[in-house]
Structure formats: structure tokens, C-alpha cells
Nucleic acid binder design. Sequence first.
DNA 1: TATATTCAGGACAATAATTGTCCAAATGTA
DNA 2: TACATTTGGACAATTATTGTCCTGAATATA
Lengths: 111, 111
Amino acid sequence: MNTKQSFGEYLRKLREDQNLPIRKVASKLDIDPSTLGKIERGERSANKEMLPVLAELFGIEEKTLGLILFSDKVAYQIIEEENTNEILKVAEEKIKYLKNKNLKQGSLDLK
Amino acid sequence: MNTKQSFGEYLRKLREDQNLPIRKVASKLDIDPSTLGKIERGERSANKEMLPVLAELFGIEEKTLGLILFSDKVAYQIIEEENTNEILKVAEEKIKYLKNKNLKQGSLDLK
DNA sequence: TATATTCAGGACAATAATTGTCCAAATGTA
DNA sequence: TACATTTGGACAATTATTGTCCTGAATATA
């Protein structure tokens, strides 16, 4: 996993390695080519529904794509803060706590 | 740091420990009391501008408040995923890379 | 050179999400 | 009871995101 690449850069590389034009991938995703171009350049965000389509198209685990996409989103959300590592650590603990709580009880609801 | 508490719960505890009504804290924050109530219950999100006000009011480091707030946001963003730990780890690496890159170059721009 | 294809990036309306504000009902308290 | 506090719904205003189209530049192709 190359963490020096954003989701968009990763996607572009996949696409170019296969010599596919934006147009074709966009059509598979059922979005405007211009939108896909923006996603590749990081000017718009991809969404979860695109992942299974891309996974199949490029023969990559959907989970891997999700990992790249969500880590991007998390990074973007906190990169302006100073104590990013601490934030991530506390977030990890909160998630652990909440998931566990959730196993034992009903559904959750955070904001 | 108690990671079993959301920002709202933490805030409510601070407020109740001082026997302050929502009304008063809301007025310091210059927001509607109903909105503050919702923040405490996690139905709305707090924002960064509120942190210095709360920090001074309760005598707590702004950074600590920010830590609780942002870790909440990160947790909320990914809690529905399976591989949350991996996501956080990759996010950490990305941030590290981007911050370093940023030190050496100009300003950054992700999405 | 002319023509076609691809891509970047702007514009802008449609849609969705968030926020501010007010109010009425419920709850707590003197 | 009377008063203060809190909850939670409603809804408009604001802001953010998305879908769509268009133009021009760059590149490839006939």
C-alpha cells in the first residue's frame, strides 16, 4: 500500500495502466467524464457506490479501494490540526468502544 | 482522557459540574440554547470557533477540547467500515507524508 | 494541415446537508 | 402552582455537494 498516493492519483494510475480513457470508466460509473476527471485530480470526492464498480473493473479488492478512499477523507478532515496522531489514537479507542458497545446493544447513532 | 465520552457528553458534564444552565453557556457561545442542547446530545456538531470560548469558560486547554471534538468526527466518519484500524493507520501515514511535503513546499490542497 | 479525441477546468442550476431561529411540550425545581 | 430549564420538532436561510454542460488546450490520427 503506497500511502503517498491519494485515491484520485491511485485511480488515475489504474486507468492509465490499462489505457482506458476517462470517458469509458466514467460510463461504467455512470457519471460525467468531467466529474471523474475531477475525482482523479482530487477536486471532487468519490463515493462508496463507485467502489464495487471500480473493484470489478480493475480487479482490485473493494476493501482496498475503500481503505484508500476513507484514509484520504480522514486525513483531509484533520490535517490542519497540530495533534493529528493523538486525534487518531483517541478516535481508534472511541471506535473500539462504540463497536463493542454496539455488539452488546442495538444500533448506534453518533454525530 | 476518557475515550468513552463524546464531545457532547463531555461538555454537558463540564457544564453540570459548574451548575450552569444551557442558557448561559449558549449565550457565551452566542448560539441558541436549543442548539447547545443538541450539541450536548450529539444531534448537532460543534465547530472550531466554539473551542476557545469553552476552553476559557471551563479552564481547559483548547487543544484538549479539539482532540475530543475531532476524534469524535473521525470516529463518526468511518465507524460503519470494517477495517477502521487499517484506515486510521493509512491516514496517519498520509498525514505524515503530506505534512512533511508541505514543510518543504508551499501550501496543500486535498479533497 | 485538417479532423477527431481526450482532458482540464469553469459555470451554473439542482439537490442535499448544515445551521440559525423560534416555538410548544415536557421536565425539573422552588 | 409558578418559574426556569430542557427537549425536540419545524422550517427557512445558508452553505456544501453534485450533476451537467460547455469551451479551449493539448494530443493523437488521418
